[in-house]
Amino acid sequence: MGATSHNDAAPARRQRQQRRWATQIVVIHELALRTCTERGLAPPDDILPMHLLTIPETDIAGLGSIVAAALAHSPAARALLADLEREQHIPETAVRDYYDRNRDRFLTPEALRRGVDPYDDPAPADIQPYEDVRTGIAQELRHAAARRAFFDWLDQARADVVYAEGHEHPGDPTHQDHEHRH
């Protein structure tokens, strides 16, 4: 037959990328299993059995598709993330600072219904009191800090991982058909 057409290469490229993507999910799961064991965390299968879960688009956008999929499918990765979240201490000053800098996020429902512009110096009555939103802010900041800790852990944990050819990260620029999308 003749030379391979450009269109014939696309399925092979897609399969290589899928293999690389799936490899990353398995590697994250295995690294998380090891770390859970080191930390004395409950056996991951007892936390939540591995099964197909829907991955919210916001997680894909915020975490990247590989980490989002690993967290969705790996009980060990979720257990580790939860443990990292418990370790995060958010100082009261950070919570208060977040509230003060993001007043637009704390308009009352009534102010929203009236169409109050959060950037046009809303009245104090149009902003939810700090005491009412403090716990939610602290949890949001703790969650964000845990995700950063998870990424730090992952960078360190896979630093020594050696991938077989064809199983590298799909965004690794050292292979010719790398892709890096979020």
Rank of each mutant, 00 (worst) to 15 (best):
S65Y: 02
P118K: 14
A146Q: 00
I25Q: 02
P11E: 08
H167A: 13
A82S: 07
H175T: 04
A10E: 11
R105C: 06
P170L: 05
P109N: 09
A61D: 02
E92M: 09
H169A: 12
P170S: 11
P124K: 07
H29G: 13
A69G: 14
H167R: 07
Y98M: 05
P109Y: 07
Y119N: 11
N7H: 15
R19V: 09
Y98A: 11
H73P: 04
G115W: 07
P49W: 15
D121T: 12
E179G: 07
M50Y: 09
R14M: 07
F106V: 04
H182F: 13
A138N: 00
E110C: 05
R114L: 10
I47C: 10
P124M: 02
N102Q: 12
I55D: 00
E131K: 03
N7D: 14
A70W: 06
R181E: 09
R78F: 09
D97Y: 07
W21L: 09
E168I: 10
R114I: 06
A111Q: 08
T37L: 15
I127G: 03
S5P: 04
Q88E: 07
R181F: 14
A111R: 08
R39E: 12
R181K: 13
H167C: 12
R114S: 08
L141W: 01
E30H: 11
I47Y: 13
E165P: 14
I127E: 01
L71W: 05
R78C: 04
I90L: 10
T35D: 14
L81G: 02
A138Q: 01
F106Q: 06
H175N: 04
L107S: 05
A76N: 08
Y130I: 02
L154P: 01
C36Q: 06
A10T: 15
D97G: 10
A42G: 12
R113T: 13
P170D: 10
P173Q: 05
N7S: 15
I55K: 04
P124Q: 05
D104M: 07
I60S: 04
L33S: 09
A12Q: 14
R113G: 11
H51P: 01
L31N: 08
A164S: 11
T93I: 11
R86K: 13
R34P: 02
E110R: 12
R105S: 08
A111D: 06
R158V: 04
S5D: 09
T174A: 12
I25Y: 02
D172P: 06
R181L: 15
I25D: 01
G40F: 12
L141V: 02
G166H: 10
T58C: 04
E92K: 10
A125P: 01
S5C: 09
G62Y: 01
R134F: 01
A125C: 03
L33R: 12
R158F: 05
T54C: 06
L41F: 13
D100A: 14
R134Q: 05
G2L: 10
P56A: 11
E168F: 11
G115M: 08
D120Q: 12
Y98Q: 06
A146P: 00
I137S: 02
